[in-house]
């Protein structure tokens, strides 16, 4: 069945439970693509403008998953230097970013057999990471969720508490996720529009760039923090098996 099929099953179930306006998923796809247009490091093949109609008309892969829902593998690399504050000071590095909250959860509801597939471990590890950071979800200045399929972003809006379960479509309708909007989202294009070169490191590197004020034309105004997430694999009949959340702040 492959990952598109697994996310097709998730999407169709979400639609049956809550209704799903696919044009709002298209809005997320367009927002991320616009960010990739401003990111010179994004995969060149993907640096072509798209519209919500382009999203809606892109060919079905695993109905209701369309081509423009899917992440594209690409060649590339990403790297971060991690060190103690002391070492950073010795090296004369002036721009540093600090992880102040991290949590992950594997095997969400593993002791239950029949689960609500629209929910994930992010609802638990998201709270833990935010608590550790002393923040609430409303404090988040920019959001860099793992994006292998567009629907995963909607599910994470709900799991992290940006909105209630089932209210993701309305949340998308009500907010501007551009780099200069009220909740900047995957400002480098996300994996879906920058290319999945080194798995979720793209979104992490982008968050670090933003907090260092080095994001060029797509620089967000509020660099007080960033929330980066990870997800891993789809279990049989469940949502993703591993959920991670990381809150970063500039030093």
């Amino acid at each position: 069945m492959g990952p598109p099929g697994a996310f097709g099953l998730l999407s169709r179930r979400y639609e049956a439970q809550y209704g799903l306006d696919y044009r709002m998923l298209g809005k997320l796809a367009v927002t991320q693509r616009n960010h990739a247009l401003l990111n010179e490091n994004a995969c060149e093949k993907l640096r072509v403008p798209i519209t919500i109609d382009d999203y809606m008309n892109s060919r079905m892969i695993a109905d209701p998953i369309r081509l423009l829902d899917c992440v594209m593998r690409a060649d590339g690399a990403a790297g971060l230097m991690m060190m103690s504050r002391k070492r950073a000071k010795q090296k004369g590095l002036s721009k540093t970013v600090i992880p102040i909250g991290y949590a992950e959860l594997t095997n969400f509801k593993g002791g239950e057999n029949l689960v609500d597939v629209t929910k994930s471990g992010h609802e638990i590890c998201g709270k833990k990471a935010l608590d550790a950071a002393g923040l609430t979800i409303k404090d988040i200045a920019s959001f860099h969720p793992y994006d292998d399929f567009i629907i995963a972003i909607l599910l994470q809006f709900e799991a992290f508490g940006f909105c209630k379960a089932g209210a993701g479509v309305q949340f998308i309708r009500d907010h501007d996720f551009s780099y200069n909007g009220d909740l900047p989202l995957n400002t480098g294009g996300g994996q879906i529009s920058a290319g999945q070169a080194a798995c979720s490191s793209h979104n992490l590197v982008e968050a670090v760039r933003q907090l260092q004020g080095e994001a060029g034309k797509r620089q967000v105004k509020d660099t007080s923090n960033a929330l980066v997430t990870g997800i891993g694999w789809i279990n049989y009949g469940r949502n993703w098996g591993s959920s991670a959340a990381l809150v970063l702040v500039p030093e």
């Binding site: 069945m1 492959g2 598109p4 099929g5 097709g8 099953l9 998730l10 999407s11 169709r12 179930r13 049956a16 060919r59 079905m60 892969i61 695993a62 109905d63 209701p64 998953i65 597939v117």
Partner: peptide
């Protein structure tokens, strides 16, 4: 509970699209 219609199958299923899971 849910379903998806494959329009681009994994290699063993290529050419049989559309089929449903």
């Amino acid at each position: 509970f849910s379903y998806t219609v494959a329009q681009r199958g994994t290699p063993a299923f290529r050419g049989l699209e559309p089929y449903a899971v």
